[in-house]
Design a protein around this nucleic acid. Sequence first.
DNA 1: GAGTTTGAAACT
DNA 2: CAGTTTCAAACTC
Length: 662
Amino acid sequence: MDVVSPELNSLLPDEIMDTEAIAMEEELPAEHLAAPPQSEPEPPQVPMETEVPEIVSLCPATTSMQMTSASTDAQCSTSSGTQLLLAPSGLITGTTTTSVKTTGPVVTQNLPKISSVTVPANHQLIINKVASAPAADGKSPGAAVLKPEGQKLLVAGLSKTGQPIMLALPHTWNKPATTQGTGDAKALPTQIKMVTTVGKPVIAVSSASQLMGSSTTLQAQQLKTLQYMLTTFNADFCVQTLKTVGGVGTSQFKTIIPLTTPPNVQQIQVPGSRFHYVRLVTATTGSTTAQSGGSTNTNPSIQPAKPVMMNAAVRMSVPIIPAQSIKQVVPKPLTSAAQVVTTSQTPQRLIMPATHLPQIQPNLTSLPPGTVLAPAHGSGNMGYAVLPAPYVTQIPQSAFVTLTSSSTFSTATPIQTQARLSLNGLSTSEATSRPRKPCNCTRSQCLKLYCDCFANGEFCNNCNCVNCFNNLDHESERLKAIKACLDRNPVAFKPKIGKGKQGESDRRHSKGCNCKKSGCLKNYCECYEAKIMCSSICKCMGCKNFEESPERKTLMHLADAAEVRVQQQTAAKTKLSSQISDLLTRTTPAVTSGGGKLPYTFVTKEVAEATCDCLLEQTEQAELTNQPQAVAERLILEEFGRCLRRIISFAGKAKTDCPINC
DNA sequence: GAGTTTGAAACT
DNA sequence: CAGTTTCAAACTC
């Protein structure tokens, strides 16, 4: 399905390399890009672990957050019992926690259809800074980060499953948008991070890097209740937001997964991260202390606190809208393309931004579709592995950190579903439901594009490869390989089958094939393999893969016929099996006799399948001899009768031969 | 299943 | 960028 205009699609190669700039130029006021007005010196720039600009959690889950919709005005109100905490990363590690006060403005701007969400009384909003860079005052590395009036939180919408999608806006977000487009997007990259709760209400929101080192004061009285702006997740906004957060037109959907080794959450403190996080968690007794406003800390915004007890987790992912799938993602962000993870009963996962990926940083957005950042077991200090989305399903359970109500981290349940993303022009369902063929690589270590698994952005799983490095155990090598591929070809992991120009076929090979001997009518040809015709950009010789080609038509006809035949046989087999099963079920009471094992007992699965085979064979015979349908049906029924007689005969014989055991 | 063919990827 | 080599999938027997 074509979901993105050719114009947009044409923007992909360059723009995806600088998604932040695009995002800022297109979506954010210029002031948003400018240096924050606070007087504190800018914290030292730390290497950006990744240019992944946004984090979006699209995990389907329920949430106890009360949502109201249809409001078009930004609102911020409170409800009793909710606490707002601002905490440095130490909060997560259990070393320090800072409770803060805030004036609590939640501002939405330039966002349509704002609605609101009410935070339940037993929830806390915890603002956590993950970055470990020293604060400007040098006293509180990793200290709380939000300006009193700075951090804006948007609940950008609700998924189908009701989970809120949160936006954390830089403190400059509420500035007028009059200078939009005049700022230097690259100078001060700002990220909107969208997250949703998973299961119980935990919301993680990242703010812009320039907020690091700043402080936030939140009024404790106002912490008790919060109400956030919501925007309904209409398609236009989704498109804009996703473009903003992920860059334009790539078919990538990035998810960030925390490091393993719970309960040590040091991994969450991503060194050099420019992201901040806000978590909305269920209030606990321990956190009440944290939100006390009576701290004597010289920095009023930073107060010690107990480790926060979290019983919910967040999964954040970074969507980069695929050219072919953007419209698939947007309307149903949490049910299909965006539904990266489904968690189980305790679906809490703490998701952190990728870190220490300098090698691939420049091309992160060119990573395979659905790239995920995940724990890297063998990557030394890399911290996070860069994974395509399908990898998520292969990550062992221990790879996820769960925040539990007992203030400890534990492993989470494995991911149950995976992102459904567009791959090579196939629909998301096609791409993910189709079983991938195992590779047979022997010399490439599955780290070259020769390997289909690697090229398609998947881990090798149940493959026949030799000396495979395409797994989490060789993450560092794999990262290097990814970088090498991207160095050679920045769009190496982009789908080769994209949209053609206007007026041309919807799908065409991005590079074109180079076939010489196959006539482009064998699967050697990438165009033919993708079931598309060769185009003007192909360099093939003797091409027969064009619209009017009689050879192609013949092949297509044969292929269609074969496919129909297979489908018919499959359907017939299924139907017969079902009928036999149903027959056995319905006749069970009637055939009881003599107290022994009855004939129907012998209609095992194998017998049923054999019967089906006989019937199918009869069907084929009838087809081959061109029998009329009525005759064919009669022959099949006769065959079925013979099968039944044989079954009964053998059953009766067995009963006679084995009166004790049967 | 072994051997061959093929063309993309990688290399020079 | 063109020519060559490497590689793994597709194909044939």
